[in-house]
Design a protein around this nucleic acid. Structure first.
Lengths: 229, 229
DNA sequence: GGGTCTATGACAGTTGTGTGACAAAACTGC
DNA sequence: GCAGTTTTGTCACACAACTGTCATAGACCC
């Protein structure tokens, strides 16, 4: 599950945020001070950090700088102050986004998802030999690791589906005919083209937000299939 | 230099943004409509795109979706509307950030810099080779991608329409008789010439701004059809 | 104004695509 | 090897999209 750390000294606001985030399906954790938050993040790294600016002791700016020193986690400032100076300073300190309280939980989670799309896949940073991942907006394909993620969520695809997806990804934006796919994915020189349809259908069930209206794995009638962002 | 594309229909706001961005050392380019912006980005990709939501013709949301389809460029919405629904919809459509007008230029550039930190180094790997397209004035025909775009906006044409269009484009500026088209597009040595009319009509519905007064796909009475700029 | 040419809406036949059901094949743990 | 599970390929059918024909109305030319 996706974990969020909320660093906010006001108990009521922190609690409200935590509850709202949990309602949205996040695993939310709170900290009342910067020090506490930094410690928590060091020991149990969350996937996102929300941080207030006005904190007792170490303030938000410093908290962001310290977080950034050894963590690439997306940081969103949630502050009551709507001053350009604060916004600029927070972003310069290393924050990724800045929203002004009170903020609708839907906006907040939408911003988290937007950040998720940009967040570096962990592997690319921490693995000495980076896995050549391919990203298509919400879709991430790691051919080496043999895994596929949609909006950060890992989805399990079968080997055939994976090969099919890779083949399409390799020629992203271009149409591949059913014949070409049969050839490249299955190694068949001829065969029933319906086979491709079926596997495309199954793949859509797994990687499309709305499989009935595919946005990435699209059909080009009479031509074949194409993968696009 | 870092290039920014500003898609905003209000001339004064666009100009103000462009000047301010240039002051900050960016190479700023403006577009008054989504269509114009999409075309600009396709031909001269900028490093960032700022886009308004309320645009004449194609609106901002659709513009974002189309940009995202084959571009990983950071997109920031600059809108007068401060509604949660708009913010969520824009972010879901693929925007990376959303700021409310009027916005301090310092905040905007700070947000751009924050986005740059996140800009996917993977982009180079994941961005597919640009799909070759034949440009024809406002029209772009791309056999590889199996698509046709008018003013940057994708239009779906059927296979027959596509072949017909290609045939006309190949002999752009010259008249092709119905017989010639029947021969080349359909492979018929003889047949009802009305068939060509019908398909030309359907094609016009899709690619002409005003299908009743065709400007590109014109009739030459008694001779045939011609594609012109 | 009459003849010719063109545009277009309606329609039915055809083709292409999506999908659920099912059985064969491959894999798994024992 | 065996029983249970997952994956794969085949098939049939329903549905959607496309195509070509036709009829009608309108545009154009002399």
């Amino acid at each position: 599950m996706t974990a969020v750390l909320v660093i906010e000294d006001d108990d009521r606001i922190r609690l409200a945020l935590l509850l709202a985030l949990e309602d949205e399906g996040y695993d939310a954790l709170g900290a009342a001070t910067a020090e506490e938050g930094l410690r928590a993040q060091r020991h149990h790294p969350a996937d996102y950090v929300l941080v207030d600016l006005m904190l007792p002791g170490l303030d938000g700016f410093e908290c962001i700088r310290q977080l950034r020193r050894d963590d690439d986690v997306p940081i969103v400032v949630v502050s009551a102050r709507d001053e350009t100076d604060d916004i600029v300073a927070a972003l310069e300190a290393g924050a990724d986004d800045y929203v002004v309280k009170p903020v609708a939980i839907r906006e907040l989670t939408a911003r988290l998802r937007a950040l998720r799309r940009r967040a570096r896949p962990l592997a690319a940073v921490s693995t000495p030999d980076p896995v050549p991942a391919v990203a298509f907006g919400e879709l991430e394909i790691s051919p080496e690791a043999g895994e596929v993620r949609r909006a950060g969520q890992q989805v399990t695809v079968t080997r055939t589906e994976f090969r099919l997806l890779c083949e399409l990804a390799e020629h992203a934006g271009r149409v591949l005919s059913r014949q070409q796919l049969l050839q490249r994915v299955w190694g068949y020189d001829s065969g029933d083209e319906r086979l491709v349809d079926v596997h495309v259908g199954r793949l859509r069930q797994k990687i499309e937000p709305d499989p009935a209206n595919p946005r990435h794995l699209v059909t080009l009638r009479g031509l074949g299939y194409k993968l696009q962002r």
